[in-house]
């Protein structure tokens, strides 16, 4: 019962890496701003990261399918949310 990890094509892998990166920046700055709410520099970086994240997510979903159920994109037919790979199946 060999379970081979899904190997993503290069374009999809690169876009996913971009999403990981901007998502991480946004996560880190969210925690930082929770205790430094008046830090303008961090807030500016946060707003930029969120914008860049949304751009990357929008492109990814247009090309490869939804990252969130009832999230940013309408679903093509048939219901696309159930498509594999799920996150724990992906090999790079």
């Amino acid at each position: 019962m060999a379970n081979k990890p899904w190997v993503l094509d290069r374009g999809r892998r690169e876009l996913l890496t971009q999403i990981h990166q901007w998502h991480f920046v946004a996560t880190e700055l969210t925690l930082f701003l929770d205790t430094h709410w008046d830090n303008r520099e961090a807030l500016r970086d946060y707003n930029e990261a969120v914008q860049r994240l949304h751009q990357a997510v929008e492109e990814y979903e247009r090309r490869y399918g939804p990252l969130m159920a009832h999230g940013h994109s309408p679903s093509p037919y048939p219901w696309a949310w159930i498509e594999e790979p799920w996150p724990w199946q992906i090999g790079l």
């Binding site: 990981h20 991480f24 939804p66 990252l67 969130m68």
Partner: peptide, 13 residues
């Protein structure tokens, strides 16, 4: 909560 269909960071072994 909202589920996002990617890991926070890609995992490799």
């Amino acid at each position: 909560w909202v589920y996002v269909k990617h890991l926070e960071r890609q995992v490799e072994v």
